[in-house]
């Protein structure tokens, strides 16, 4: 089973729940840290990291020696990530790729015309009549097309946006996505982390906070989502948003109310009104917060908590298979 742990609001206990669930399962399982902007699961699990992989995206690179200044690439880019400045007077032509705006759709490379070197040297002004002369190869073949002998001015190069770290602790395999500082695209990295889910192991996905694309990417394809919240007006406001997302995606979900004795009863009333299953209520205890601060999982410091987490899993299983 694939279970994602998400929340609208940050800091409600997603990582605490993910790590403690993984540790309470008592069988081999996989924990995927998909909060790639701020991954924290490793702090608690303290795994031995065995290897890492780079996560790359494709970014266009323009060879100005071959560019005929047709401007097609800039025209087809829906994200305004390319600017072409054709030569004029004494000024040589140039261009820019704004890598942070690029979504790696590949349209610029596809529409960049194939020009013979003769044509290229004589091209001095924008020629919009030039049309692409061949169909791009399928994406799987693309890699082989990136040799320097390409007749196109645009080729795609790999750009590293983050890393995937593979670790293990006891029965838990940890796969952590870590976005490079200064990079802004979390979604391709989350997608790649999730490719490592193995079909014969239970997977627990620690999702990023919020309700926009990174959260959606993390919960997509999960069999069940646990929404962790706290009973404050902020927690409730963001829970409602997260519930709307999951209903739109048609993924079954239940709620865990963390620090349930710490706020008011509006969250529980909302769940009752909306017919949302409350999987567990975790009390606020200063000793829990202190263990968290030191990076110690609750089930390690307080073994009596194990039951709480394994019961959550049992409740989900009985809901899914009934």
């Amino acid at each position: 089973m694939k279970i994602a742990v998400a929340s609208g609001k940050g800091g409600t206990g997603k990582t605490t729940l993910s790590v403690n669930l993984a540790l309470s399962l008592n069988r081999r399982c996989c924990l995927l840290d998909c909060d790639v902007e701020e991954p924290n699961a490793h702090i608690f699990l303290k795994p031995k990291f065995l290897r890492e992989e780079k996560c790359n995206v494709l970014i266009p690179e323009i060879d100005f020696k071959k560019c005929v200044w047709c401007g097609k690439c800039a025209e087809v880019c829906a994200y305004n990530a390319i600017v072409i400045v054709p030569p004029s007077g004494k000024n040589e032509g140039t261009g820019f790729v704004f890598e942070h705006l690029c979504h790696s759709c590949g349209a610029c490379e596809y529409f960049c015309p194939i020009i013979s070197s003769k044509e290229a040297s004589s091209a001095t002004e924008i020629n919009k009549e030039i049309k692409p002369r061949r169909l791009a190869k399928s994406i799987s073949e693309r890699g082989s097309n990136q040799c320097s002998g390409s007749a196109k001015a645009i080729s795609e190069k790999k750009k590293e946006i983050g890393k995937i770290e593979f670790g293990r602790k006891g029965k838990v395999d940890l796969i952590t996505g870590r976005l490079n500082v200064g990079e802004i695209r979390a979604v391709p990295l989350i997608e790649k982390v999730k490719k490592n889910i193995s079909l014969n192991l239970d997977a627990i996905i620690d999702a990023p906070p919020g309700t926009s694309c990174p959260m959606v990417e993390a919960v997509k394809g999960a069999d069940y989502v646990i929404l962790v919240t706290e009973p404050t007006p902020f927690g409730l406001n963001d829970l409602v948003l997260a519930v709307e997302v999951l209903r739109k995606l048609s993924i079954p979900f239940g709620v865990v109310v963390n620090r349930y004795d710490y706020g008011d009863d509006r969250t529980l009333k909302y769940c009752a009104r909306e017919n949302i299953k409350v999987l567990a209520k975790i009390p606020f205890k200063r000793k829990f917060a202190e263990a968290y601060s030191k990076g110690i999982p609750l089930v390690e410091e307080f073994p009596e908590c194990s039951r709480l987490f394994s019961d959550i899993f049992k409740r989900i299983e009985s809901e899914m298979f009934s």
């Binding site: 940050g10 800091g11 909060d35 902007e37 701020e38 942070h100 976005l179 500082v181 990079e183 802004i184 695209r185 979390a186 990023p208 906070p209 919020g210 926009s212 990174p214």
Partner: peptide
């Protein structure tokens, strides 16, 4: 601001 270090933070 939002949490994280990604696109909305930048």
């Amino acid at each position: 601001g939002p949490p994280g270090i990604g696109c909305p933070v930048m």
